[in-house]
Simulated scan of single mutants.
Amino acid sequence: MLEIRPTCENCNKALPFDAEDAMICTFECAFCRECVETVLKQVCPNCGGNFEKRPIRPEHLLEKYPVSEVVVYRPVDIINHQKLLNKTTNS
């Protein structure tokens, strides 16, 4: 079951369970669409993978399956991320 993390790891924008702009990678790193498209260039800074739209957990299941309250706030190191982007585009 997905954690449904509450914020963007880069900018700390709120990403509630029903956020239309929440994106995740295969390891559930959570980012807003704006950061994914403009800062990250569709490449996860943690694993180098791609992103997909995060599914929305149905509201009637939130009590039984609550979303995460753990905030993971790690602004992206732009220089290191550019190195990762260079590696992924050159491979």
Rank of each mutant, 00 (worst) to 15 (best):
A22K: 02
L40Q: 02
E34I: 08
G49Y: 06
E20H: 08
Y65M: 13
N90M: 02
T26V: 14
Q82E: 12
P58T: 13
I24T: 10
L84K: 07
G48W: 03
H81L: 04
E9V: 04
N80Q: 11
R54N: 10
R57W: 09
M23C: 09
S91F: 07
N80F: 07
N86Y: 09
Y65A: 10
L2A: 04
R54D: 06
Q82G: 05
I56V: 15
L2S: 07
Q82D: 13
H60C: 01
E28A: 14
S68G: 10
H81G: 00
C32S: 07
Y65N: 12
I56E: 12
Q82A: 15
R74G: 03
R57M: 13
P66V: 04
A14V: 10
I4T: 02
V67G: 13
F31L: 06
S91A: 06
L2F: 11
P66C: 04
D77H: 07
E3K: 13
V70R: 10
S91T: 01
N80T: 03
L61A: 09
E28K: 15
L2P: 10
C29T: 13
N86E: 14
L62W: 05
H81C: 06
N90E: 02
V43D: 00
V43Y: 00
E34M: 06
I56N: 14
K41R: 14
E69P: 07
N80R: 09
V76T: 13
I79R: 11
V39I: 13
F17P: 09
N10L: 00
E34W: 05
C32W: 01
C44F: 10
F27N: 14
A30H: 04
H60V: 02
H60W: 00
N50L: 09
T26Q: 14
P66L: 05
T89P: 00
L2Y: 10
C44H: 11
I24A: 08
N46K: 15
C29G: 12
E9L: 03
R74I: 15
V72K: 12
Y73E: 12
T88D: 00
P16W: 01
D77Q: 04
S91C: 04
E59S: 08
N90H: 03
M1N: 03
E69M: 13
E20C: 01
L62T: 02
V43G: 01
N80E: 15
F17G: 01
L85I: 12
C35L: 02
R33M: 10
N90C: 05
D21F: 00
V71R: 15
M1R: 04
L40W: 00
A30E: 11
E20M: 05
E63L: 04
R33N: 12
E37Q: 15
K13Y: 09
I24R: 08
I79V: 15
V72T: 12
H60N: 04
K87V: 03
